[in-house]
Design a protein around this nucleic acid. Structure first.
Lengths: 338, 338
DNA sequence: ACGTCGTTGGAAAGCGTTTGCCCGATACGG
DNA sequence: CCGTATCGGGCAAACGCTTTCCAACGACGT
């Protein structure tokens, strides 16, 4: 079952057997190659990936680093990435950071030691922590120096390719659509200050309002956790003092779910009393009631694209692909009453 | 950065350095051990996991095989498994079968070649395909023969430990609760014939009804795909000819979501016109409207438990842990009307 | 004082590949 | 007909670690 067995059986040297089987630069005479192939087939030879990893300096692993795999946002992306890994006969390794930059760095380091061939890094950067960001960049450079390729699904700024969901643009379009419906005073439920994705969506939203000629003093910003419970809490607080808000924009679908729950519990009707919109268009949440207006992000495709970019033998420099978004208005939004 | 550097610096042999650093059976004199530790620290030495894998015949990888990582059922379990992998400084590799037994076999084989230390296999078996099941068992035996440990989250019958959600018991309890509410005629939306998990839940449900003294001829079985769309389609069909059904039991939460959607579109009110119950208690779906009555499965804990069992140095034979379930009645169920 | 045994360091043989290098053979130009 | 490329096979040296085996040494019993 080792290459030596195959070589012996085909009556060639180890070197020839190796070259015949993995088609190196060196050409092997046809008859020998055939003998080797036959021997390998008869013996049911399968190369040992660990030994190969050691000898070449690269493995058949591709790393995927996410914040939280139980979050449908990340698991959808993971599903896309996994498809291409399997298609290319690579093994996907998964790491979860729990939004801790240090964990991310440790995971990248681990992947480098495993000689992973490529790395897909998913998840918003924390803008506050420039020092950690620099350490992460440093670790990624090390990874790249060892021959690994990197693609991040997040904001640009790190070494490697980037797939960037058009958070800003999507939020801008959403704001436009909402303004068109007649909304002027909206509460934006954002994540914590440092979460770049949240920040972009907030800014895009304001831009969209401004572009639509709406006074952005009408947007009321509430910061909370970037989770379902965060959305719930913020909405609960908002309900206590709603002011003249006619619409709530939660910067992610999971937050929007919390928002809907909180409003429902308090007897606030959506969309009659207030409209609600989210962001991401998580597939699992498509059956929410009322159906959530949101900005669609093709998550699986994003994962697929990122994996492909990370695995592509790139000739030149770092690429940036902005993934377009699409606003989908469903039942959770309506013109403000009155 | 190699062990040789450390050995040289500590002025000991390679063997001693290795023994000092990973505490083998052989004892290293204290002063030497200290010198090695110091040298390693000064040099920032980190062992090469690939070389270690080759030399020992076991790696720091632990494999996780699921049907579909985008499905919250599996991603929740994955999250639990990942926690313990990280806790033990192991790298988790992820594979998706897409419910194809051959893919599962191929993934196990791949994990064996990677010398994965343990394997967690999640997902219902296909009862129809005994031949594929036997091939999978064979592959698992090979895996175990190479020193890998296996824990399956599924029906018993495969080599290795088993964590088995109490599908039958949970469904039985659910049936009891539903019967107590007054339901006598219920439609059970099941997965395809061969899916064991679905089958168990169906059978448990019938048992529960019988135990409650309800005539099980009152349960109407509809087979469909084990997905959200399957639940939707089956519910649509049911709505066309509802008979005197007062309650629908969809054998999984995602199917129940499809069911709710189909009923809603047709103006059937839940729970006023008909009650709906699911199974799993997927966290992401907790905000469904109406809140779904279901059978709670502690998914993350299951993943954690399975990973722990797979990683434990087991003294004896194969263990079977049945994970208890708990029925939670929420807003989607009510007594049948009049 | 001598044999025996337990302890511990070190040399070296793996683990299963890939690949640099040498060398013979064949082809080709002069 | 000889010299020089060119092609392609094989030997052996990596890759970075673990572990077996041997030898040295001190302790201990008699």
């Amino acid at each position: 079952m080792t290459l030596a067995d195959v070589a012996r059986r085909a009556d060639v040297s180890l070197a020839t057997a190796s070259r015949a089987l993995n088609g190196s630069a060196r050409v092997v005479r046809a008859d020998l190659a055939e003998r080797v192939a036959a021997a390998a087939a008869e013996l049911g030879y399968v190369p040992d990936p660990v030994a190969q990893s050691l000898a070449r300096k690269s493995s058949n692993l591709v790393g995927l680093v996410v914040h939280d795999i139980a979050d449908p946002f990340f698991s959808s992306i993971a599903a896309g990435a996994m498809r291409v890994a399997e298609e290319k006969d690579l093994v996907l390794t998964l790491g979860a950071t729990g939004r801790d930059p240090d964990r991310a760095i440790a995971l990248v380091a681990a992947m480098r030691l495993q000689r992973a061939r490529a790395l897909v890094l998913v998840g918003s950067r924390l803008t506050g922590d420039d020092e950690a960001e620099e350490r992460l960049a440093e670790e990624l450079r090390r990874f790249a120096a060892d021959g690994g390729r990197v693609c991040a699904v997040r904001q640009p700024g790190l070494p490697g390719d980037v797939v960037q969901p058009d958070n800003r643009g999507g939020a801008r379009q959403l704001a436009t659509a909402l303004a068109q419906l007649g909304h002027r005073r909206v509460a934006v439920l954002a994540g914590p200050e440092g979460v770049a994705t949240s920040q972009e969506r907030v800014e895009g939203f304001c831009e969209g309002f401004a572009a639509a000629g709406v006074d952005t003093s009408g947007v009321r910003l509430l910061r909370t956790a970037f989770t379902r419970d965060g959305g719930y809490a913020a909405a609960a607080e908002l309900a206590r003092d709603p002011g003249d808000v006619t619409c709530v924009f939660a910067v992610s679908d999971v937050m929007a779910m919390g928002t809907l729950a909180a409003l429902r519990e308090r007897g606030v009707r959506v969309p009659e009393d207030v409209s609600v919109a989210g962001f991401d268009d998580i597939p699992t949440l498509r059956d929410a009631v009322p159906a959530l207006s949101t900005v669609r992000l093709p998550l699986e495709e994003i994962g697929e694209l990122a994996a492909r970019m990370a695995l592509e033998e790139t000739p030149g420099d770092e690429r940036l692909v902005v993934v377009p978004t699409e606003v989908v208005l469903r039942a959770s939004t309506a013109p403000p009453r009155g």
